[in-house]
């Protein structure tokens, strides 16, 4: 019974339909949480006693940085599943994740840079945290470029999965970089083992935005994966039928 369930789930046609139903159910909560997060982050939370209002960049910067790593792990995991079990759907999720992950990495870098200018007095320093995050961006761009360079979709998926898996080594480096090396970048405040050293009024919008970004990734990756399905299954009957109706 379980086998049957997984096979149906992984069938492109079934996935396409199911994803179409799921997308609005993810997008609407995402929008609501974003609005709540913006309200609590920009209006309700008090200014920081050291950084004034500039710290509000954190509500974009930190969730974006978390997503940049989370999506990478999902992409590499999906790539591995595609590589081992040859599940087409996993390949599609892996490749659909790359541009979204690249976007969040770009956002983490840019907002960090904009935040760094008034706080550190510089847009950029070549320290471990910033450099390893920049490498993450190049890994994403490498995945996208490699996928585009190989015409055969299944072959491309295998190559991409291997590149993504090798790049996983960068994830713990990003995470621990602020502890292993001296840096301008501040240490973790939320994921510390004892109590988080952040006030509740700032933690709430941060977590709201973090969940909103997770939901955003979920529905955007489904949107992209649906396009992948259409592209790969363009010769199957149900796709032609669907295309003729539009």
């Amino acid at each position: 019974m379980f086998n049957n369930f997984f096979h149906r789930m992984a069938s492109p046609k079934h996935f396409y339909r199911l994803a179409g139903i799921l997308i609005p159910w993810l997008a609407v909560p995402c929008l609501l949480l974003t609005l709540a997060g913006l309200y609590y982050g920009l209006v309700k939370a008090p200014p920081d006693y050291q950084q004034g209002d500039s710290y509000r960049i954190m509500f974009i910067h930190v969730p974006a940085a978390w997503m940049s790593m989370f999506i990478y792990v999902v992409m590499a995991g999906a790539g591995a599943i595609g590589l081992i079990w040859r599940i087409k759907l996993a390949e599609m999720v892996a490749i659909s994740s790359a541009p979204i992950g690249a976007s969040f990495t770009f956002l983490a870098l840019v907002t960090g840079s904009i935040w760094g200018k008034p706080m550190w007095g510089t847009w950029w320093v070549w320290d471990a945290r910033l450099t390893s995050e920049l490498i993450l961006l190049f890994l994403y761009l490498g995945v996208i470029a490699l996928n585009n360079a190989i015409d055969d979709k299944r072959m491309a998926a295998r190559a991409v999965a291997i590149l993504a898996l090798v790049g996983v080594i960068n994830i713990p480096i990003i995470h621990y970089s602020v502890e292993w090396w001296n840096t301008l970048h501040q240490g973790p405040t939320v994921t510390k083992f004892d109590k988080p050293s952040i006030h509740l009024s700032m933690l709430i919008p941060l977590l709201l935005m973090a969940v909103a970004f997770k939901l955003y990734y979920a529905f955007v990756v489904l949107m992209r994966a649906r396009c992948e399905v259409l592209d790969r299954e363009r010769n199957s009957g149900w796709v032609k039928e669907l295309a003729e109706k539009t």
């Binding site: 200014p47 956002l107 008034p118 955003y216």
Partner: peptide, 30 residues
């Protein structure tokens, strides 16, 4: 924004732009 308007609003503006582009792109592609 306590004098940090340029930094705060440009961060939020860029984020909004990037997130919107990521929604529009698959819609158009489909």
């Amino acid at each position: 924004m306590g004098g940090y308007a340029v930094y705060v609003w440009s961060s939020y503006g860029i984020a909004l732009l990037v997130l919107l582009v990521n929604i529009i792109a698959p819609l158009r592609q489909r």
